[in-house]
Design a binder for these strands. Structure first.
Length: 266
DNA sequence: ATGGTGGATTATCCA
């Protein structure tokens, strides 16, 4: 089974790229972030004609997530249990930052869009840390129940875990994505049993998944590694290969993120 | 001097 994660920065603006990507790489399951669409705004005809089922979760113009699968899609959940909400919820509305489903032979995959954090002293920064802690707790609970559970936590984590995951640490001094609390929160998810299954075969420095649209960051190779596929032990041991599709960042109409692709022999 | 891109939605917010 070939799974992938991609911050698409508007699914409606890039549906043609998604279809071409799925076909080009023979992808079975694709997790998307920043779909920037409510489910009812999406025209899924072409995806369905290509043999894919789709589940989408979105409430506003920036932080929607989706799962696309041609190997089954069931038990779809639109929120992680006990996930803290932003803004502090009075209406019952929750943010569309997580969407999980069962695909293939019992693999649970979560498409995750971790909060950006904005600034170190912004309320969203604390929200980001709480969100990651809730993800860790839920991930730990899942493995405490069944250590052999096949779980993949994939998506845009908005954290660069190592210094080598950004093009210039001095540039990021005092900024989010590289602060120690964010990195500790990311490591806690890993330590709960969810390993980065890509880094081993694609070590840095200079291996990125995101390049800002501004300042010619992509041609200048000034990027960040912030998109990850984290796998439970049974997923880790099933990995047969992986790659970051840097080509997808090229040309007119590219997302600012590249897809991350992982092959599994479950 | 400096958000110099890009998307969604409409002059502003978000990343």
């Amino acid at each position: 089974m070939r799974i992938a994660t991609w911050n698409i920065n508007s699914l409606r603006a890039r549906m043609d790229r998604v279809l071409a990507f799925l076909e080009r790489h023979d992808v079975d399951v694709l997790a998307l972030q920043e779909t920037k669409a409510k489910p009812q705004q999406l025209d899924l005809t072409a995806l369905q004609e290509a043999g894919y089922e789709v589940a989408a979760h979105g409430l506003n113009q920036w932080n929607g997530v989706a799962l696309i699968s041609r190997v089954g899609l069931s038990d779809v959940r639109t929120e992680l249990p006990a996930l803290p909400l932003w803004p502090e919820d009075e209406t019952g509305v929750v943010e569309a930052r997580a969407l999980g489903g069962l695909v293939g032979d019992g693999l649970r995959i979560w498409s995750l869009y971790i909060p950006n954090g904005r600034e170190l002293d912004h309320p969203h920064y604390d929200y980001k840390l709480r969100w990651l802690e809730a993800l860790r707790a839920e991930g730990a609970r899942e493995l405490a129940e069944d250590l052999s559970a096949k779980v993949a936590l994939v998506g845009d984590f908005n954290v660069a875990p190592l210094d080598e995951d950004v093009w210039d640490m001095e540039f990021f001094d005092g900024k989010t994505h590289v602060s120690e609390p964010e990195r500790a929160a990311f490591r806690a998810v890993v330590d709960a049993g969810y390993a980065d299954v890509v880094r081993g075969d694609h070590p840095g420095p200079g291996v990125y998944t995101y390049w800002d649209y501004q300042q010619l960051r992509f041609p200048k190779r000034q990027g960040m590694r912030i998109d990850f596929v984290l796998g439970s032990p049974s997923v880790q041991s099933a990995v047969t290969g992986s790659f970051i599709d840097r080509e997808e960042r090229k040309g007119k109409g590219a997302s600012d993120h590249a897809p991350v692709v992982v092959d599994l022999d479950l």
